[in-house]
Amino acid sequence: MKKKLEDLLNFAVSEIENVETENDMNLIKSKYLGKNSEFTNIMKEMSGLSIEEKKEIGLLTNEFRTSFTECFEKKLNEIKTEALNKRLENERIDISLPGKGIKTGSLHPLTHIRMVLEDLFVSMGYDVVEGPQVETDDYCFEKLNIPKDHPARDMQDTFYITEEMLLRSQTSSVQVRTMLANKEKTPIKMICPGKVYRKDDDDATHSHQFMQMEGLVVDKNISLADLKGTLLKLARALLGENTNIRFRPSYFGFTEPSYEVDVTCFKCGGKGCPLCKNIGWIEILGSGMVHPNVLKMCGYDPKIYTGFAFGVGIERLAMFKYGITDLRNFYTNDVRFLDNFSRKDVK
């Protein structure tokens, strides 16, 4: 009996080895364990045996069943896995085909720069204020200490609409509005970004319309050192932490003292190259301490208050930051140009 079961198991194992389909597996199962199988017959024969023999044969049959099942399940698993793998292989796709969906849009490079500046200054406590582009001569010049026929007006040839109305040539008019609107004459920290217009022919470095951002701080004890610190922060936020700045005395009617501000050339790092005309510095800003006449005209007592103001051309910053050599690119809006700015930038 024992021999019989051992032989039977050997037969079954070798037969299982050669099966290839799930269907054949089922046939084998019924062949060896089914109603008419030899194994079932052996089980049936057991009824006539003694208790001792039953015990012995019972152990042997259990052993047979366990071994058979183990071998069977292993093979069945193999067959199933193989079948699944085959099916998956048939589902193979070309993962190199492009993805589906809408193309990536973009923000205009000037918007990118403006956002960086706005976020920086808002984090330092500055309000962002906008104002009308059709402005009065009074707010754009007179209240900024640049009376009619003042030579400083030559620097900004202006589009006039009437004798009194003009297209603002600087966003400083918004500073005037903010100071006048502040009835309690509390301290001011503000920036005013926006479009300005000057009578310049459009070329690689000039545009009759451009984007400017000016800033103003008015409080007690505001000094040039504060202005310097603020502009250093601005330059580094935009052009990198290794950037340095240089103040050069200059003249703008609404500030006294006035300074033009250079940054270290980001192309050569200050060593001198064609971009910076070999001086290592590039001019990007105008700034200064608010002229006492301006404070006075806007209702702040210059004996108590001091302030600083600065202005920067966004196009110029964008040109340097992105390496754009022709300013007209910003306004012709070739989509291939715009697509350059569809990604998040690194600092």
């Binding site: 706005e118 050192a225 610190g229 502009l231």
Partner: peptide
């Protein structure tokens, strides 16, 4: 002139 930031009570600005 040594650069430093103005000491004005700083809360984030309005935008």
């Amino acid at each position: 002139v040594e650069a430093h930031l103005p000491v004005v009570p700083s809360t984030p600005g309005y935008i």
